[in-house]
């Protein structure tokens, strides 16, 4: 077995709001070997972004976490503040969503790309940082003159590329991409995906790719984990999860996207009725049962654990 860059065991994360505790992630475990890629998918509110932020301990103060996260062999929750800062961006870096205000609006793109190199002393001087940021811009397909541009002068796709260049600044072992293609138009989305896939082929970069778009994941991720209500409900090799989904939720998610080359699926997209449950008020038993077309009586009482559902595949459903 390859060396693990990330090992997550029984990670649970609870926010504390004015109206009570909100369990956003309820016991998630997975391993990520060097060079591997994992796609995390689910509807908004399923806890996937919370999970991403937890991997660098970026959750707001007062959030409760339990379980264990080993990043590059170090116990994340036992790190000192200095140790934590040393891990951030050099071991694991996050590609944030460019549509959001992930870039400081009053600093140039170049300055923000150079910043982590200078903080972590991965370059010897400001000049070296400039040279490296120019290389990074070239790498992500941005003209060097845009180093001097302010975020508002860039398009959505360009901002996303800046965020990717920024994440690569200190040559991290692990890249966590949190919805990097959301809110980009289809062509730009494809370009950004191709870029991420290319970066992975070139190096031993490990990747966690988070999205609500299942079809995107089969392109960049070897493994898929489908999340629902703060838990992984199905996981396995991408293609088999996508094509032979066993959990009714995965099937609904897969069916929600039209299949390219099959016009009938475009004409009759099958949606999933209802909304995902609020983390503060989960239904009893399997949290998916109120929306599940196959729900039985027993689904209302007991929440199933992950169980084998095919070669390398596991699902948390009593029907498999």
């Amino acid at each position: 077995m390859n060396q693990l860059v990330l090992s997550v065991k029984d990670l649970a994360i609870t926010y504390h709001s004015a109206s009570g505790p909100v369990p956003a992630v309820r016991g998630v475990s997975f391993d990520l070997a060097v060079g591997d890629s994992l796609g995390l998918a689910g509807e908004s509110g399923c806890g996937k972004s919370t999970l991403a932020n937890a991997l660098l301990r970026l959750l707001p103060d007062g959030t409760t976490t339990s379980g264990e996260v080993m990043i590059d062999g170090q116990d994340l929750f036992a790190l000192s503040p200095g140790g934590l800062r040393a891990v951030r961006w050099t071991t694991g870096a996050i590609v944030f969503q460019g549509a959001l205000h992930a870039l400081n609006p009053v600093q140039t793109a170049g300055r923000q790309v150079r910043e982590p190199m200078l903080i972590h002393h991965t370059v010897g001087s400001e000049d070296e940082a400039r040279v490296r940021s120019r290389q990074l811009f070239e790498r992500v397909g941005l003209p060097a003159n845009q180093l001097d541009a302010y975020p508002h002068q860039l398009s959505g796709g360009q901002r996303q590329r800046v965020l990717i260049a920024m994440a690569l600044a200190c040559d991290p072992q692990l890249l966590i991409a949190d919805e990097p293609t959301t809110a980009l138009d289809l062509m730009v989305q494809a370009q950004v995906l191709a870029l991420i896939a290319e970066l992975r082929r070139e190096s031993s970069l490990s990747l966690i790719f988070i999205t609500h778009d299942l079809s995107v994941l089969t392109y960049v991720a070897d493994h898929l984990a489908i999340m629902y209500a703060g838990k992984i409900v199905e996981e396995g090799p991408s293609l088999s999860v996508f094509q032979n989904a066993t959990h009714p939720y995965t099937r609904a998610l897969a069916a929600a996207f039209p299949t390219i080359g099959d016009p009938s699926s475009r004409l009759a997209p099958s949606g999933l009725a209802g909304d995902p449950p609020t983390p503060g008020a989960l239904p009893s038993g399997c949290p998916f049962h109120p929306r599940c077309p196959l729900a039985e009586d027993r689904c209302q009482t007991a929440e199933p654990d992950l169980r084998p559902a095919g070669p390398g595949q596991r699902a948390a459903c009593v029907l498999v």
């Binding site: 951030r88 961006w89 400081n104 982590p116």
Partner: peptide, 16 residues
């Protein structure tokens, strides 16, 4: 704002 989360993720000290 998100860019402050980004700044923390980069490994900057709180005061920076």
């Amino acid at each position: 704002e998100d860019y402050l989360t980004v700044a923390r993720a980069k490994g900057l000290r709180d005061v920076v």
